[in-house]
Design a protein around this nucleic acid. Structure first.
Length: 118
DNA sequence: ATCTTGACCTCTA
DNA sequence: CTAGAGGCCAAGA
């Protein structure tokens, strides 16, 4: 084994993998918030990094569309390739929206499971 | 190597 | 209620 410790490029940081692990656990027709994920990881203020992880998760097979901000607004809908994609996906899953165009967190609020923490 | 931006959140005035 | 500041981690220039 080469002792070179020049980091293993092509491999995401642990933080990303943790975020993906939680997002992957999000059930159908359910949504969560960046803060909940960040807090579940141990750092509630790391919500920004969660967004970065999702940004890299787009197209990776992760339901990043089930992750919304604290207000339930689809902050990253533009990153899905279209402003209508994310909303359409959630609506297709049975998620309801408010008059403000926000997700009903009161009805679809989901929290990560302790088993997803790992 | 440093600085700025980014799918954010929470606290305080 | 709104406005401002701090903090977290990572990527791009």
């Amino acid at each position: 084994m080469p002792a070179s410790s020049t980091s293993e490029s092509a491999e995401p940081s642990d933080f990303f993998q943790r975020v993906w692990a939680v997002v992957e656990e999000i059930p159908y027709g359910r949504v969560t918030t960046y803060g909940d994920i960040a807090e579940h990881l141990g750092t509630r203020s790391a919500a920004r990094t969660v967004g970065w992880a999702l940004n890299a998760a787009v197209g990776s097979g992760l339901p990043c569309h089930r992750v919304v901000n604290r207000k339930g607004a689809l902050s990253g809908k533009l990153h899905f390739g279209g402003p209508y994609v994310m909303e359409d996906m959630l609506r297709s899953e049975g998620v309801t929206f408010t008059d403000d165009g926000r997700v009903d967190l009161e009805k679809h609020r989901w929290r990560p499971s302790p088993s997803a923490a790992e």
